[in-house]
């Protein structure tokens, strides 16, 4: 298979899955429709009928991790091509990546020392 044929197959697979889910939905519709009743459509909150919208400014306590993750995550963009040729290149590759990771690790250590690794 060429590359494009593979992607087409994957795309077709995804579309097929979506299609079969829709078939399932229409089957369920054929069995019956949802009856509109008071209270039924309010998000369940354990016996209390809380109607207030909750879409507010949410305090994500992990933003310290989040910031470091955004940066640190990029490391793997370089790591995969590196890993593939690692055996071929040998020691130089190890040293290269060692330096790269050591630099990034410094960043992690700095973040840790500044208290980024905690619930804010």
């Amino acid at each position: 298979m060429t590359l494009l044929e593979q992607y087409r197959l994957l795309l077709a697979l995804a579309i097929g899955v979506v299609g079969s889910v829709f078939c399932l939905y229409s089957l369920a519709r054929a069995i019956g429709l949802t009856r509109q009743e008071p209270g039924k459509d309010v998000p369940a909150s354990s016996g209390a009928l809380s109607r207030d919208p909750v879409w507010g400014r949410y305090h994500a306590r992990y933003y310290g991790y989040g910031l470091l993750f955004l940066a640190f995550d990029m490391e793997m963009a370089f790591m995969y091509p590196w890993a593939v040729v690692y055996k071929e290149v040998g020691l130089v590759a190890l040293l290269d990546m060692g330096v790269f990771l050591a630099i990034l690790f410094l960043g992690l250590l700095y973040g840790w020392s500044q208290g980024a690794f905690r619930r804010q």
Binding site: P43, A44, S45, S50, P53, V54, W55, Y58, A60, R61, Y62, Y65, G66, F69
Partner: peptide
């Protein structure tokens, strides 16, 4: 737009990190 679901969703983002 329910509180439990929303907190769950954002929690999973932390879990991903």
């Amino acid at each position: 737009d329910g509180a439990y679901a929303m907190i769950g969703g954002w929690r999973f983002l932390g879990q991903l990190i």
